[in-house]
Amino acid sequence: MTEANVSMFERIGGEHTIDRLVESFYHRMDTLVEARGIRDMHDPDLEPVKRVLKRYLTEWLGGPDLYSSERGHPRLRQRHMGFPIGDAARDAWMLCMDGALAETVADEGACQNIRESMKKLADWMRNRQDAEEG
């Protein structure tokens, strides 16, 4: 099978890597001072949101349709509209994701591709000007 025929999900190591990525991401959100603002947007128990993100990333990266079969179309921007997401929140989210990707995705090319896509997604999710952030 050529690289072109392999999903990004398979290329990075499948479910095991997604699990590690999400755990690393939320560990950073829990521990980095820079992430306090986005951590405060979440419930104290992160387990439900971890499950959702694992299912979303699995599908988004070309794995099984775990997210949409359970929750329908992602509608990410709509689902996050109630949270104040400006430049600071975007940057904190990317700080956590960059660290998690660097820790868990060994394939540098895949890591860079995912990072670039995540940056675009995080930027698109902004719904506030920083002066309006809480």
Rank of each mutant, 00 (worst) to 15 (best):
Trp124Ile: 06
Gly82Cys: 12
Met81Asn: 11
Phe83Cys: 00
Glu3Thr: 09
Leu76Lys: 13
Met97Cys: 09
Arg20Glu: 14
Glu23Lys: 06
Ala122Asp: 04
Ser68Pro: 06
Ala92Met: 04
Met29Leu: 13
Tyr26Met: 12
Arg126Gln: 14
Tyr26Cys: 13
Lys119Gly: 06
Leu101Pro: 01
Asp91Met: 08
Phe25Cys: 04
Ala102Thr: 10
Arg71Asp: 04
His73Asn: 07
Trp60Lys: 05
Trp93Leu: 02
His42Ala: 08
Ala110Ser: 11
Arg11Phe: 07
Arg115Phe: 10
Ser68Phe: 03
His80Gln: 07
Leu32Trp: 05
His80Asn: 06
Leu66Gln: 08
Gly82Asn: 09
Glu103Lys: 06
Glu34Gln: 15
Met118Trp: 12
Met97Lys: 07
Leu101Thr: 00
Gly86Asp: 12
Val22His: 01
Ala92Trp: 00
Thr31Ile: 13
Phe9Asn: 09
Ala122Ser: 10
Met94Leu: 14
Pro74Ser: 15
Thr58Val: 13
Arg115Met: 14
Met97Ala: 08
Thr17Trp: 03
Arg20His: 12
Val6Asn: 04
Arg11Gln: 15
Val6His: 05
Gly109Cys: 05
Lys119Asn: 10
Glu23Phe: 07
Leu76Ala: 14
Arg11Trp: 09
Gln129Ser: 13
Arg126Asp: 10
Leu76Asn: 13
Ile114Ala: 00
Met41Trp: 00
Gly13Ile: 03
Asp19His: 07
Ala106Met: 03
Arg77Tyr: 06
Ala89Gly: 08
Cys111Lys: 05
Cys111Phe: 00
Arg90Leu: 08
Gly13Asp: 03
Arg71Gly: 03
Leu53Gly: 01
Gly72Val: 11
Met118Gly: 13
Leu53His: 01
Met97Ile: 14
Leu66Asp: 05
Ser7Lys: 13
Met125Cys: 13
Ile18Asp: 00
Arg20Ser: 12
Arg128Gly: 01
Met118Ala: 14
Glu47Pro: 14
Phe9Tyr: 14
Trp93Thr: 02
Cys111Trp: 01
Gly109Thr: 06
Trp60Thr: 05
Gly63Pro: 09
Met1Leu: 11
Arg77Asn: 02
Leu53Ser: 01
Gln78Arg: 12
Gly72Arg: 10
Ser24Glu: 13
Glu34Pro: 11
Arg79Cys: 08
Ala92Gly: 01
Asp123Cys: 05
Met41Tyr: 02
Glu47Tyr: 14
Glu15Gly: 08
Leu46Ala: 12
Ile12Ala: 07
Val49Met: 07
Asp107Leu: 05
Pro48Tyr: 11
Asp87Arg: 11
Leu53Gln: 03
Tyr67Asn: 05
Ile85Glu: 00
Met81Leu: 14
Gln78Gly: 07
Thr58Phe: 04
Gly13Tyr: 04
Val52Ile: 13
Asp123Phe: 09
His16Gly: 11
Ser24Thr: 10
Ala92Val: 00
Ser117Gly: 12
Val52Phe: 00
Ser69Ala: 13
Tyr56Lys: 09
Ser24Met: 15
Arg51Ser: 14
Asp123Leu: 03
Arg51Glu: 15
Asp40Thr: 11
Tyr56Gly: 02
Ile18Gln: 05
Glu116Cys: 08
Asp65Trp: 01
Ala4Thr: 09
Gly134Asn: 13
